[in-house]
Write a protein that binds this DNA or RNA. Structure first.
Lengths: 223, 223
DNA sequence: GACAGTTCTTAAAATAAACTTAAAATAATA
DNA sequence: TATTATTTTAAGTTTATTTTAAGAACTGTC
């Protein structure tokens, strides 16, 4: 969950950022309206917390501008004023909620929670090489429309190879990376896992193979 | 648009009713908690405006009762108290917005407008994924025409999964979200709850399953 | 082609992770 | 306070992964 916090009072901004980060939100904070618009339109946030009183471009203008650009991210407006007109203007310009300063942590979290109850964004993290694609989140290795689940150790070994696809990787380096430098793992452990991986590459029908150069190490190759 | 107005001060009730009717809303007004529950459950309203201070059963009780009955109609709470605890309690019990008395016509209309625009917006009150629907107000999980009540912890766990339906969710992240970062909860606590949830998914006959990838975390999958 | 040194594969054994269940402890509710 | 529901703990079971180990298959040298 990513939140854009637009607040020019540094101490308040820091406090809110900290509170939200403790809850596991990723928070970007900016202190003026111009940056707010840039950030809001430039990155995908799950929520924007927007102070009305800002230098240069005020919060209401920011809201109007980004809504005009069809941004549908929920917006929680913040203000020191309890002025009714502001509340009405804000809600009518597409703010989703409104909170007056000062507020307490609990209220902030209740409101943020209510607004972020939306499907989370998906950031896929993967390594690709030739016809192979390794999903780093799920340890699934794919080729074309076939894919296989890797175990933890298989995942570790192929990761080392895929991160350095043209390099020779020594057995020691694989052991160090996957089993850890204190481990008692032997060459045979690596051999067994390379064998498992080869079997899966074959099953996937990949062009990529694991080549062993005698006494030197392993390297990915393309047939 | 039908609105249920729950307010015991006759003059205020009449005034609000009149204002809303001028805007084209159909308004039913009741003056006590017992009737409020009956009306709320008996007819389909697009919004319930609920005073906290009521004779016999107070507004908070009304809210809790109807949410327990799986009612997901948006609720705007009204109160003379500006007590923070009430706001938080209200929001946590499934109120959608909060307004302190006295208020002005404009604010009322802005908030009513915001809440009635939102009807049909599944996002605020429920999360849906494939054949599953989780009512965020009542913690009822449904699939087709079957549904089950979830306990607080079950609700917390499945919420984390449903918010990020395609992502791997680590056990740590579940613990942090559901038990809190300071808690002493262990992996086994999560395992037990995942087991409860699986049993309920099976009972519901859902296509969705909870998959555990060893050492990586949990993820929803579709069979 | 025989030998020695590697490397590869496989199956079984050992270990670790994950699951389920029931009972105990705690919390919520009547 | 009594009752009920929820949550935690803990132990036993199941399942998956990892390690071990032994033999087969290569590779290069003589």
């Amino acid at each position: 969950m990513r939140i854009l916090l637009v607040e020019d009072e540094v101490s308040l901004a820091n406090a809110v950022k900290k509170i939200l980060e403790q809850q596991g939100y990723v928070v970007d904070a900016v202190n003026n309206g111009r940056s707010a618009v840039d950030y809001a339109l430039g990155a995908k946030y799950n929520l924007i917390i927007l102070d009305v009183m800002l230098p240069e471009i005020n919060g209401m203008e920011v809201l109007k501008t980004v809504r005009k650009q069809n941004l549908s991210t929920p917006v929680l407006m913040l203000t020191a004023l309890s002025a009714l007109s502001d509340k009405v203007t804000g809600l009518n310009h597409g703010a989703d909620d409104y909170m007056t300063k000062p507020f307490e942590t609990e209220e902030l979290l209740a409101r943020v929670g209510a607004l972020t109850r939306r499907t989370g964004d998906i950031i896929m993290n993967r390594i690709e090489y030739k016809d192979l694609s390794l999903d780093l989140n799920s340890a699934v290795l794919s080729c074309g429309n076939e894919s296989v689940q890797l175990s933890h150790k298989e995942f570790g070994v192929i990761k080392v190879l895929l991160y350095n696809p043209t390099m020779m990787i020594t057995t020691e380096s694989i052991i160090e990376n996957v089993w850890g430098s204190e481990s008692e793992a032997t060459d045979n452990n690596v051999e067994v896992y390379i064998s498992f991986i080869r079997k899966k590459l074959k099953y996937l029908g990949s062009k990529v193979t694991v080549r062993k150069l005698q006494r030197l190490g392993y390297r990915l190759e393309v047939t």
